[in-house]
Design a protein around this nucleic acid. Structure first.
Length: 489
RNA sequence: GGCGCCAUCGUCUAUCGGCUAGGACACCGCCCUUUCAAGGCGGGAAGACGGGUUCGAUUCCCGUUGGCGCUACCA
């Protein structure tokens, strides 16, 4: 049963530009996007760059680029604008200051002058004494003029929220009822100063100001939710619905991170993963459409998407399944499209340049299509077309035959192919030329050595197809080399 | 340590009290076949444990165990 969505749906992805677009963030963005599209809502990108020390524009650019590449589109954001902007928190400081001052004036927040060292000592003491560590609240008891004097005196301070002690619970769309005792939270910091608000505060303010209806985010944020609810209540804000997504895990079952290898979306792009494959894979991590289909476009998924059917438990990121999706979508591509997609990988390693016959390259790619898991696989798979790799003469000998027989069959193949007209060196012509050899030596003893002589590999596409692409001159040369090697040994 | 969340094949998952526990990836075998890939067919592989509730529990409740997350003047 689908949940009734009462208010206009407005959801957001709120990445912090302190690193490249992460797989986890991308999946969260995807789910927000899907939910918005399903419900005719608005999807917003909001850059949470309050940490000025770690935030960088290049990371913001990377995030936008990654989301775009994945196939997501948004209605409001730092690049697209919108009537709830600005969409960078660094540009919203006036808004935060107003609400911060409101809290301060009403004694719902206070300046704290404790030094980091003091705090550390207090925390260690509490841990050692077996009491749950939290801020003592001591600065909350300071007299007003004392506070003013310290501030004008330039004593460093932060702003803490005066956390009311009570049981707090909220209904998570995915997890159900979540209960916490705010006693354990203590007076947490909401800003370094009125000019430098911190995450939990800005998130609460912006979710209200941007009229966010549903906060869909990773479950690592569950413990932030009560803090944000407390701030909303203090400021008289409305509470959005919350949906905490299960996490994506690495193979060792810990939260997916850099030490698990590629976590940046654009790294996957650069390795040769298709956006439709990654999106399809990510969407099915923690959610399923109800039937046993596996392949879905973003449009098809958004038509069926439902928050209430999202799984509660974390999911391991299985690269082999991604590869399977990717191989599928690669096979769906037309030869022309795949050629455009693969070309950069070939040019990058110098196999192909402006002078290369693109028709030949396209044929190579079409031939290797079924063997590609990633676009970058085209390089190792097609290298032999451009230059014959080193190989052991031994490899020319088919396992069910012997060196002497193979030497004879390869020589016969040479003769048969040499007799062909270079201008009509087609698959059909090559095939029928080799048929005479097959008649005498059998299929395996004929094709195997030809294939190895042409590719230098023990695993490759069929020799007839390779030969057609290589052209008569190169084919004759390679086979001749093979025959020579067999006769020498 | 404290708090929170979670718990079906190795992995992603189906099951919303009747199950010979279904599908997919991966793996293995067979077919196709000169090799590899693709494709087709088949196989092994799961309900963490202990209590309840019930005619009947994978499914509902409690406990245990385990995993993960959070525990910043990061987000």
């Amino acid at each position: 049963m689908e949940a009734v969505i009462p208010k206009p749906v407005r959801v957001r992805i709120a990445p912090s530009p302190t690193g490249f677009l992460h797989v986890g963030t991308a999946r969260t963005a995807l789910f927000n996007f899907l939910f918005a599209r399903k419900n005719g809502g608005v999807f917003i990108v909001r850059i949470e760059d309050t940490d000025t020390g770690r935030s960088e524009k290049r990371f913001e650019d990377n995030i936008i680029e990654g989301l775009t590449w994945l196939g997501l589109t948004w209605d409001e954001g730092p690049d697209t604008g919108g009537s709830y902007g600005p969409y960078r928190q660094s540009e919203r400081k006036d808004l935060y200051r107003t609400h911060l001052e409101s809290l301060l004036e009403r004694n719902l927040a206070y300046h704290c002058f404790c030094t980091k060292e003091d705090l550390e000592a207090q925390k260690n003491y509490m841990i050692a004494s077996g009491i749950p560590p939290k801020y003592s609240g001591q600065c909350g008891a300071l007299e007003k003029d004392d506070v003013a004097r310290r501030i004008t005196g330039g004593v460093p301070s932060v702003i803490r929220f005066k956390t009311p002690t009570r049981k707090l619970s909220f209904i998570d769309v995915i997890k159900g009822k979540i209960e916490v005792d705010t006693e354990l939270i203590g007076d947490f910091t909401i800003a370094k100063s009125v000019e430098e608000p911190l995450y939990n505060f800005t998130a609460a303010v912006d979710d209200e100001l941007m009229e966010i209806s549903h906060v869909i985010r990773g479950e690592d944020h569950i413990s932030n939710t009560p803090k944000q609810i407390l701030i909303q209540e203090a400021l008289g804000f409305h509470a959005p619905s919350y949906a905490h997504l299960p996490l994506i895990l690495g193979p060792d079952k810990s939260k997916l991170s850099k030490r698990h290898g590629a976590t940046s979306i654009l790294e996957y792009r650069d390795e040769g993963y298709l956006p439709e494959a990654l999106a399809n894979f990510l969407a099915l991590l923690g959610w399923h459409p109800g039937d046993e289909r596996e392949f879905y476009s973003l449009e098809e998924i958004s038509a069926q998407f439902d928050l209430s059917t999202i799984n509660k438990s974390n999911a391991v990121f299985n690269i082999q399944k991604l590869d399977w999706f990717n191989a599928h979508y690669i096979r769906q591509k037309s030869d022309d499209d795949l050629c455009v997609l693969c070309l950069p990988y070939l040019t990058k390693v110098g196999l192909v340049d402006a002078s290369t016959d693109t028709e030949k390259v396209k044929k190579i790619i079409a031939l290797e299509k079924d063997r590609l898991k990633k676009l970058s696989d085209i390089v190792p798979l097609s290298e032999f077309f451009f230059s014959l790799p080193e190989y052991e003469t031994e490899m020319l000998v088919w396992k069910k035959s012997d060196a002497a027989t193979v030497a004879k069959s390869l020589a016969a193949s040479y003769e048969a192919l040499a007799a062909l007209n270079a201008a009509s060196f087609t698959k059909e012509a090559i095939k029928s030329a080799l048929d005479t050899v097959v008649t005498e030596f059998g299929t395996g003893a004929t094709y195997w050595p030809v294939r190895v002589a042409l590719s230098g590999k023990d695993a490759s596409p069929g020799p007839v197809e390779i030969a057609e692409i290589l052209g008569k001159e190169e084919v004759i040369k390679r086979i001749h080399a093979g025959v020579t090697r067999l006769n020498i040994e």
